[in-house]
Structures are given as structure tokens and as C-alpha cells.
Amino acid sequence: MRPFKFTKVNDAANAVQTVAANANSKFLAGGTNILDLMKEDVMRPDELVDVTRLNLTQIKTVSGGVNKGGVSIGGLGKNTDAANHPLIRQNFPLLTQAILAGASAQIRNMATNGGNLNQRTRCSYFYDVAMPCNKREPGTGCGALEGINRMHAVFGWSNDCVAVHPSDMCVALVALDAVVKVQGTDGAERSIPFIDYHRLPGNTPQKDNNLNQGELITAIEIPKNNFSDKSYYLKVRDRASYAFALVSVAAALEINGNKIKQARVAMGGVAHKPWRATEAEKFLTGKEATEANFKQAAEMEMKQAKPLEYNKFKVELGKRAIVRALMQAMNGGKV
């Protein structure tokens, strides 16, 4: 870990200005990922701006705008608090389950909601500075493309990067059409639809998302929905807990009569960004909520998958996980 300046700030504007003024400065929120990466010399900021004390932690009902009646979650609130807030548990249980599927209680107590969005990939080539990695050091090549890529992407990868986004929370957020509220360097707030927040790697895998240097996530808004009684977050992993997903699925259904009025399906562990399974959603809309239809939706979604040498299993596992998550959602999301 290189020496760095530790900067305290009083308000969000001050924080944004400070980080915007120094290209090698980073916000320090929960610290659960950035310190991990700094110890490994993967990230080498020369300044950390401590935003842990900024008052951006509230969870409240959105009182106006397009997401009126939905919920707003403070960017610097802790994951634990988001997962357990009554507004979230009762109205967005999918988000609660997704947060609780991630990491450990200790990490969720530290990690912030905004920080969760900005966590880096867990690709072991990215983490090991002795290995090539275009995300860490553009131009060095992708170690995983022809390497041990069991944990890697099956959708949307490029020859420059096959890493996946590691978050569980974000899989639920993309399924729920969340919006990221950002305080810009000009002091103005901008809104980024969640689906546009993270990026596919293309030829700039060093950019995980569309946030500019200095921009601070102030809140995440989730619009009101009718999924609360039929949603489920399924996480498949190599051990029972405290492991990153092989494949995860956020599933939510709104049923009208015996037909699916609206379906939301998103996947984790399969792409450089939380993957919205739009093919599956399109197919399911207007169909009956049967296992056969779920299977067909899963087939359609996974048909587009392009697996790598060691992750071919993710195609079949992805199908099964989609079906299982939808079945569990129909069962009221109960474990």
C-alpha cells in the first residue's frame, strides 16, 4: 500500500471537489474493497477522502418525481441497514435477500450501498499484480480469457476482459429498475438508470461504470412495484455461505389472474455488469406462471450465452437457477 494522504471533509460538495481535483484520489466509504485492493497494490491512490461521516444514510419513501412512492436509499448507508429497513423488507424483499446473500454480517455492517455498486471484480488475475490484466493495467492482456475462467463471464465479455461484477445487491437493483443518484462535480445531481450504471468491458475494461472522477453516489432510488409477494434471490456457490456466486438470479413476478403481468429476471456471476435477462422477461410477459414456461424463458435467455473453456457449466446452471428462482418467487420468496 503506497503512502496516501488521508483527507477529512465536512460535506458532500467538499468531498466531490476534493476528489475531482486529484485524478489519483478516491473516496473512502466502507473500505471493504478498496483497502483490500490497496493492500494487494491493485489500486494505488495517493489520497483517500473519508466520506464515512457524511449524512447520506437515510432510507425513506420517495416523495416526488418519477419514482414517487418508491424508496430512496442513502449512498453512504450500510448494507445491513438497507437490508433490514422495514420499507425494504416489506416492499422490496428481493433487495433484502440479495444483500443478505452477499459477504458476511461483518462486511455488510461496514460496506455502504454506494460502495457496493462500485466494488471491483474478484477475478484472480485482476487481484494478482504478477498477472496480466487489462482492467488493472490496460494493454497487458487478459489473463483469464485463455486461463482459469471458471468464475468468469458468459455474456457480454470482450477479448480484453472476461471478468464478472461480484455484487449480489446490484443484481436485485437492476431487476427492480433502480436509479442511481449522483452528485456531480458541478454540484448538480444527475440520475443514472441502473441498467446504464455498469458497463460491459469492450476495449475499456478499466472502466467498471459510468461514474466520473469525483462524482459521489448520494442515493439509490427504487420505483414502487407490485413484486413484493412474489420475488426471490437465488445464489449458487461453491460453498454454502460467504462465497461469490457461480450464478445468481433475482426473480420477481407480478401476476394478474393466471397470467404474468410483469416479470423481472436478472443474473449475477455471468457478466461484467449485473445482467438483466430481458429475453426471459419478454417471453414470460403474458404467459402463465408454469415451470414449463419458466424453462422456456431460461432456455431463451441462456441461448445467447457464450461460455469460455472452464465455465460451460454456467449455461446449464443458469437455466436451472432461473427456473428455480422463479419457482421460489411463485412460492412467495420463502426459503
Binding site: 484472480s124 487481484y127 498477472m131 482459469i148 471458471r150 454454502a240 455461505s241 462465497a243 461469490f244
Partner: peptide, 25 residues
């Protein structure tokens, strides 16, 4: 534990990659 045969390094070189059983296992 898995080696990358191009370099001889372990790609499973942390407790996040090398899974010893957790309590729930």
C-alpha cells in the same frame, strides 16, 4: 487449488478463492 499452467501460479490464492468450509457448510 488450481494452477494456471502458463505461469505456474495459483489462481486460488486467497480465502475468497480457496474455499475451506464455512459454518453453514
Amino acid at each position: 487449488s488450481i494452477l494456471d499452467s502458463r505461469w505456474g501460479n495459483f489462481v486460488t490464492r486467497s480465502f475468497a478463492d480457496y474455499h475451506v468450509p464455512s459454518n453453514l457448510d
